[in-house]
């Protein structure tokens, strides 16, 4: 009987490498793969729109589509708990935080002409080169590797909770301390700036002068276009600074 089990193990071992390619077929995708591909195209397109659109609020809304698409991809990979955490934290909290950030930094509603930096083509070159190299390496490395999605889900809430609270308790608790530290840090950052501003306008005027001297000529055009949409708050030292962001 030991011989039979050994042979069976050998057969399983070869199955995982060479036999898998025969049983799956290279260019005959399953339904899950087709769904993954379609949702992946939507996700990638939304991500590209996020980094290329010139309207800042639209970028945040395309980010919602990209993150939601990633949640669907997690569901297709049977990682259910991660998918719902993704929806809750990313789509629910992070994007709302980003929208609040856009609102508080007085982002323009329409198209902002200077959303992209001057080194845009260098960025395109770097990104395309990195994508080509990484896709080549990844496809070459995992050409004969298949994920077995049958059987019980690998990422259901029960499985994830069991492993999280059996094996990962200490990092979990450390993470709660880190979240507390981040919360306190964010509050301190916000309060300190507010206290400085309330202390006197001399400091802000000084910093505004430093930031605004060389930029007045460069941002004059955008300040003229951007100033039509919003009223200038009186606390800001001069108008040349506010044209740049928008």
């Amino acid at each position: 009987m030991t011989l039979a089990t050994t042979v069976g193990r050998l057969h399983l071992a070869t199955d995982s490498t060479t036999g898998a390619a025969e049983s799956h077929g290279f260019l005959s995708p399953t339904g899950v793969e087709i769904a993954f591909l379609l949702v992946g195209l939507v996700t990638l397109g939304a991500a590209v729109f996020t980094v290329t659109t010139r309207q800042l609020v639209h970028a945040a809304l395309w980010l919602v589509v990209a993150l939601g698409g990633l949640a669907v991809e997690y569901l297709l990979l049977t990682a259910e708990f991660i998918a719902w955490v993704q929806v809750l934290i990313y789509v629910g909290a992070v994007v709302v935080l980003i929208l609040f950030g856009l609102m508080l930094t007085r982002a323009p509603i329409g198209r902002s002409p200077d959303a992209d930096s001057g080194n845009r083509w260098a960025a395109v070159t770097v990104a395309v080169a990195a994508a080509a190299a990484l896709v080549w390496v990844v496809v070459d490395a995992f050409r004969t590797t298949w994920i077995d999605l049958d059987g019980p889900a690998a990422g259901s809430t029960a499985v994830t909770g069991a492993s999280l609270f059996q094996n990962w308790v200490l990092p979990f608790e450390a993470l709660s301390v880190l979240l507390l530290a981040a919360l306190v840090g964010a509050i301190v950052l916000s309060r300190k700036a507010k206290a400085d501003r309330a202390a006197g306008t001399g400091g802000t005027a000084a910093t505004g002068r430093v930031a605004g001297t060389g930029r007045a000529a460069g941002t004059g055009g955008t300040a003229a276009t951007g100033g039509t949409t919003e009223t200038d708050p009186p606390a800001d030292p001069n108008g040349a600074d506010k044209g740049g962001v928008r």
């Binding site: 793969e33 996700t43 990638l44 590209v48 395309v128 994508a131 990484l134 896709v135």
Partner: peptide, 16 residues
């Protein structure tokens, strides 16, 4: 599912 699908999507998202 072929492992290259999520790996390639991850690479493309990272480069984006």
């Amino acid at each position: 599912m072929h492992l290259a699908y999520p790996a390639v999507l991850s690479v493309l998202l990272f480069c984006t």
